[in-house]
C-alpha cells in the first residue's frame, strides 16, 4: 500500500485505522494475557494430595520445565501416573499420582525419570531411595490403631524402607497403665514419599498421609542451637558451672493463695 499517491485525508484516515487496529489488538491480547497470568498463578498451587513423579523439580520450576508430553506416564510399568485434565486442580497436562489410589512402586531403574525429555524429572536422581516425592505424616493420632494401643503396624510393614523411613517407637500406654504403644514414626531424612503407607492404611480415611515436604515439615529457627549437641561437639558443657548464679527455688508454701 504505497501512501504517496493518496490524498492527505486518506493518509490520515488509514493511519488512524492502523492505530485503532493496533490498540484493539494490544488491549484485547493484553486482557487475555492478564487473565492467563492470574490463572497460571492459581494453577501453580498443587493440591496436597497430588504427588509428582520421582525426581520432579520444585513445583514452580516443574511447571516451567514440564512440556506435558506424558512419556513418564507411558513408561511407568504400574500405570500409576496420569496427566491432569483441565477440570482437575493440577496444572493441565502435568503428571501426578494420588497415593491413596495407587502409590509409587519405586522401580530401581526409575523409568519415568529416564523417559523425561526435559529434565522436569531430574535425571540426577539415580537411586530411587533418595527420591523425595513428598513426606509421609501420621496426621491423625486419634484414629491410628497403634495409637489406640493395637498392633496394626501395616504402614510400618509395607514401607519399602522399613526400620529406616518408618520405625515403631515404644511409649508407655497411659490408658491401660501397663502396656506399651508402638507408634509408627516417620523419619524425614529417609522417607521417599512413595505413598505405600497411605495406600495400605486400614482405616476408612488414612491416618498416615503423604504431603508435599513444604507442608509436612517444620523448620527450626536458624539461630537455634541444641544444647546437648553443642555439648557433644565441644566435648564439654558450654556453660561455666562455677559462675552460674543459682537463684533460690520458689517452693509453693502455705502462704500462697492468700
Amino acid at each position: 500500500m504505497g501512501g504517496s499517491n493518496k490524498t492527505p485525508g486518506a493518509k490520515q484516515a488509514s493511519r488512524r485505522r492502523f492505530l485503532i487496529d493496533m490498540a484493539k489488538s494490544a488491549c484485547g491480547v493484553g486482557l487475555l494475557g492478564g487473565g492467563l497470568s492470574l490463572y497460571a498463578k492459581q494453577a501453580g498451587a498443587l493440591p496436597p494430595l497430588a504427588i509428582r513423579p520421582p525426581g520432579a523439580l520444585a513445583e514452580p520450576d516443574f511447571q516451567g520445565a514440564c512440556i506435558r508430553c506424558g512419556l513418564c506416564v507411558r513408561d511407568c510399568p504400574y500405570n500409576i501416573l496420569e496427566l491432569a485434565k483441565p477440570e482437575q486442580r493440577v496444572a493441565t497436562g502435568t503428571p501426578y499420582f494420588v497415593a491413596r489410589n495407587l502409590p509409587c512402586e519405586m522401580c530401581e531403574d526409575i523409568p519415568c525419570v529416564k523417559a523425561c525429555p526435559t529434565g522436569a524429572l531430574d535425571h540426577a536422581l539415580t537411586d530411587i531411595n533418595k527420591s523425595k516425592m513428598g513426606l509421609a505424616v501420621l496426621v491423625d493420632h486419634e484414629t491410628c490403631l497403634n495409637f489406640l494401643g493395637l498392633r496394626c503396624d501395616v504402614c510400618y510393614r509395607i514401607c519399602p524402607l522399613i526400620d529406616k523411613a518408618i520405625t515403631l517407637d515404644p511409649l508407655h500406654n497411659p490408658r491401660t497403665g501397663k502396656h506399651a504403644m508402638l507408634l509408627p514414626t516417620v523419619h524425614s531424612d529417609q522417607c521417599t514419599g512413595c505413598g505405600k503407607c497411605e495406600k495400605a492404611c486400614v482405616l476408612e480415611e488414612a491416618a498416615i498421609k503423604v504431603y508435599p515436604i513444604k507442608l509436612a515439615k517444620g523448620e527450626l529457627g536458624h539461630h537455634y542451637r541444641l544444647g546437648w549437641e553443642e555439648k557433644r561437639k565441644a566435648g564439654k558443657s558450654l556453660i561455666d558451672d562455677q559462675n552460674i548464679i543459682d537463684l533460690p527455688d520458689r517452693m509453693p508454701g502455705p502462704e500462697d493463695g492468700k
Partner: peptide, 29 residues
C-alpha cells in the same frame, strides 16, 4: 507470560495441545 510467570502458561489453555493430548490421554472437559 511464560517469561514473567515462570510457567508454560499457554499450555494451561492451548486448545491445540489439549485436543491432541486429550484424545490420547483422556479428554476430560
Amino acid at each position: 507470560v511464560a517469561g514473567a510467570s515462570g510457567t508454560i502458561a499457554w499450555e494451561l489453555i492451548n486448545p491445540v495441545s489439549m485436543l491432541h493430548r486429550g484424545l490420547i490421554f483422556g479428554l476430560g472437559t
